[in-house]
Design a protein around this nucleic acid. Structure first.
Lengths: 195, 195
DNA sequence: GTTTAATTTTAACCTAAGTTAAAATCGTAT
DNA sequence: ATACGATTTTAACTTAGGTTAAAATTAAAC
């Protein structure tokens, strides 16, 4: 399958968009390549693009003023949207920076074109609602993982559910995403290896 | 102001609903009274009601299978919506139980009536989108509080931002909401009192 | 007002993460 | 192959929350 076919397939799964409905959008999608370290969006700007990852891993992070540490809020990988949801959905200035952690390629659509699709088609409007719901669901799942799970469990979940992420970025990005320090992750890994 | 006037005012603020637009909904809102301990929704059912709190405090909680402990996920108070957002927005069976922690009174609307309003009026459809965004914003704020803040900071934030909640429910519900055990909250309170 | 139940604090001990710096390992470029 | 930089682990010590049970306090019921 070509990249655009993969996207069409994914959107069909996600929002019940048929090939015809998807075709309405086909000229709006653009390809973009990222080198490791490149930015998808910068802090304090309003994010105007919705990305869909063909290949690679991205992170959204914030620099914690208290400690000067970078903290990873979300990780995104292949066949998923990449977008700082809060900024994109509310069209407010972004708290996060979103950066490629590997070389990457995405398809992206401009919010103006997306809004045009919402107007033209009921199914695309539905897509918009489902995307907001998806953002909500990802966020509440992550929130609940902090309430119910230990760092060790979050670590094991990540390996099980997102091997593509786990296998392609350094462990210090993982520990940040799990909400712990590097040495703590090392201890967890040691603990687990003894079982 | 009467309760319905307060609601009208709040919805005007929230979604730019004028009195005329609000009036479309006026026959759909019902009053309900809760005694402390009564349930707004039960687990495993799909939540079909959106509540707006006139008076009182509610919590959504889950029983953690690992420890048999109740864990509070969300707290809701006066002049806010009360609803297990995930279930209501996605119309999926609810993971949470939502319970009045004090005697309470709410106005509520049925989802069928709400969907009718969405169909009839663009502004009400906007209301629906904004409500989903509000759910998202509340959730991401809570998620970020776990990433960036210590339990002590979360405690101080709650006192500052939600005194109506803090002053009306027992501390063991607060500690659960903060993600810590009762004795830990006591230690935090002692630490703070010495400053 | 006294008793009872509910709530909060304390104590003692345990566990795991934070912190800092150094050592070990791994990758990559030359 | 070697040397450099990046990444991961280890060590030693500190801090703070978890756990359990008991004591103290507060609120409610009779």
């Amino acid at each position: 399958m070509t990249e655009i076919e993969i996207l069409a397939f994914a959107l069909n799964q996600f929002a019940d968009l048929t090939p015809e409905e998807f075709n309405m959008s086909i000229n709006f999608w653009h390809t973009k390549f990222y080198k490791k370290g490149d930015y998808f969006n910068q802090q304090k700007t309003i994010c105007r693009y919705l990305g869909f990852i063909n290949e690679g891993v991205f992170r959204s992070y914030v620099i914690d003023k208290k400690t000067d540490e970078e903290k990873n809020i979300f990780l995104y990988s292949k066949n998923q949207f990449v977008v700082p949801f809060k900024s994109f959905i509310n069209q407010t200035p972004c708290d996060y920076q979103t950066q490629a952690l590997t070389d990457a390629s995405i398809l992206y659509i401009n919010i103006d074109d997306l809004l045009l699709l919402y107007k033209k088609s009921h199914k695309w409007e539905r897509f918009g609602r489902l995307m907001a719901q998806e953002a909500f669901n990802l966020t509440i799942e992550r929130m609940e993982s902090f309430v119910f799970k230990t760092p060790e469990e979050r670590y094991l979940d990540l390996i099980k559910n997102h091997p593509d992420i786990f296998n392609n970025i350094p462990l210090y990005h993982i520990s940040s995403y799990l909400g712990i320090q590097g040495p703590s992750l090392s201890r967890i890994r040691k603990r687990i290896s003894k079982l």
